[in-house]
């Protein structure tokens, strides 16, 4: 039957698609790749969707891999904030993993620079 062939084609075209991310990083402060003259007191990430506080994490590490955030992650809707230690000049890597309220997991990282 023709409709069966159409259906088989539709399903065949669809089955190979992997799960994709949902809550994307919309903007950040300090911004992705930015150079900031003074050490920020906190990091703010804003995602494209609301996220789950219970399963959403972020950490900030210096060039040696030492953690420089205080671990006091606060989530409000699509906003995620964490306080930072008194950091000096250098490169810092932000690594995040969040779960959107529709249960999908996304993760990523970026670097910002403190200094002139």
């Amino acid at each position: 039957m023709n409709w069966l062939r159409v259906l088989a084609l539709v399903l065949f075209a669809a089955v190979s698609v992997p799960a994709q991310a949902h809550a994307f990083l919309d903007h950040a402060q300090p911004r992705v790749g930015a150079t900031v003259p003074a050490a920020p007191g906190k990091l703010t990430l804003t995602f494209s969707q609301q996220i789950e506080p219970a399963f959403s994490t972020v950490k900030v590490t210096d060039a040696r891999g030492r953690r420089v955030d205080k671990g006091d992650v606060h989530v409000d809707g699509a906003l995620m904030q964490v306080s930072l230690d008194a950091i000096g000049p250098g490169d810092y890597t932000v690594t995040w993993r969040v779960v959107s309220t529709d249960t999908h997991v996304t993760k990523g990282n970026y670097v910002f620079h403190v200094g002139p």
Binding site: A21, H22, F24, H104
Partner: peptide
């Protein structure tokens, strides 16, 4: 991911 949720990729220089 719904297509309306997709964002154009950006580029980061370091």
């Amino acid at each position: 991911a719904p297509s309306s949720h997709r964002h154009e990729p950006g580029m980061q220089h370091t």
